[in-house]
Design a protein around this nucleic acid. Structure first.
Lengths: 221, 221
DNA sequence: GATTTGTTGAACTCATGAGTTCAATTTAGT
DNA sequence: ACTAAATTGAACTCATGAGTTCAACAAATC
């Protein structure tokens, strides 16, 4: 409507717009006309590229999930060549994961996933299996290397990765009220720091427990 | 339709049926006729008790949330008068919480909450504020008592409670694939035991760390 | 420049479902 | 038993939105 006509990359615009509208309205309440408007495209064009509202949803979800996963895997990078300060490396990863998890599109993806699990059982494979599963796996790989290097206690790396991610995402989820409340940078950092603190107490070796930074305070408040 | 007629507790039946159908279909896809059928009641009767589909949803959600919260608060009971074996007490609480969290109605409530956050911003207050918030608060109270008794390290009880719950619910959420996969009792117990293990490493005092049970294994698999 | 392909807006069909009306019937209260 | 309130089924109104059709139009290909 407003944007220029042409057949360049309508399809991508449609998928983006679809995800935006689905995220805002939910699957059932989102109407295709609004998606077309959001994408700057006519309604028949939408049906020209994607046959159904359902397949439109599936493709939009797949694309969004791919984006989120890529970003998260990239966030683990500081652990590939960890510096001398293990706590600093973990906190850096924590910061990045917290920010990605609190991101609008990430929250929207989670919400849509939860919402439409019953109606689209197949998107679970596309999103969950190639989502937290892969992230946890990748993190476990890094932690295993650290364990072999003697910088973490000798425990199951999968377990450690699972708990690290739980300590990051759990508090984030409750504090942000399932993604509805916007958190300031300070609070996000505090969540990551606290998670790393608990994680190192549980999985760290003595050397690294008092390795760096100000020693943990007794009572916060 | 099938059940006996009468005006005794139609309202409760309607709210129960509504939650069941909403849980199965989502808000938009659930139709009032089906809710009426589920409740064993005629459609006008539904509108006689609850004016709107929207208010029907709100009341059903509120009732379900109240149930879930009550059960969860009751699950903390083993920590009110903790026996000599702290680990056993924590594991008992963990077991109960894990089972409640994995329960069908609990999963459905979470899903509906996530799904309709945008459309019903007000149910967030009804559910979240009187949900994990209150649970975390109650758990923090127990942990504070334990800290004063010298059975936990001196740290912020709110922090400890937050991390305990994260260690319980996080792994549960990923392993059950957001509540779609049904987990066996063995796996549920393993999740609770692992959570308590990590928690006590991070927040326990030395006495209790090797308090009871078989010492933790090195590598699981 | 002519042809083919993709896009556009508008109007259309059709199914679904919220909410209502109503006369007939059942139940509770007395 | 009698009355008032609640329940019931069926049919109804009305709005919404998925998916389609079509004639006019733009863009790339030759």
């Amino acid at each position: 409507m407003a944007t220029a006509r042409g057949r360049i990359d309508k399809r991508q615009a449609i998928l983006d717009g679809a995800f935006t509208v689905f995220a805002r309205q939910g699957y059932a309440q989102a109407c295709v006309q609004e998606i077309a408007n959001e994408a700057g495209v006519a309604k028949p064009t939408v049906y020209n590229h994607l046959t159904d509202k359902a397949t439109l949803f599936r493709h939009a979800m797949r694309a969004a999930a791919q984006n989120v996963l890529d970003q998260r895997l990239a966030a683990l990078q500081p652990l590939t060549e960890p510096g001398p300060d293990l706590r600093a490396g973990l906190e850096e990863v924590g910061h990045r994961l917290v920010r990605l998890h609190a991101d609008d599109r990430s929250c929207a993806l989670r919400r849509l996933l939860y919402a439409e699990l019953n109606h689209f059982p197949d998107i679970l494979d596309l999103v969950v299996e190639s989502g937290p599963q892969r992230l946890s796996q990748a993190l476990a790989d890094r932690l295993a290397r650290l364990t072999l290097a003697g910088r973490l206690r000798a425990t199951d790396p999968d377990q450690a990765a699972e708990h690290f991610l739980a300590l990051i995402t759990g508090p984030l989820e409750t504090r942000s009220q399932m993604g509805t409340r916007r958190l300031g940078d300070a609070e996000l950092d505090e969540i990551a720091r606290a998670a790393v603190r608990t994680f190192l107490h549980a999985f760290g070796v003595e050397d690294d427990r008092r390795g760096s930074g100000p020693e943990e305070p007794g009572l916060r408040s």
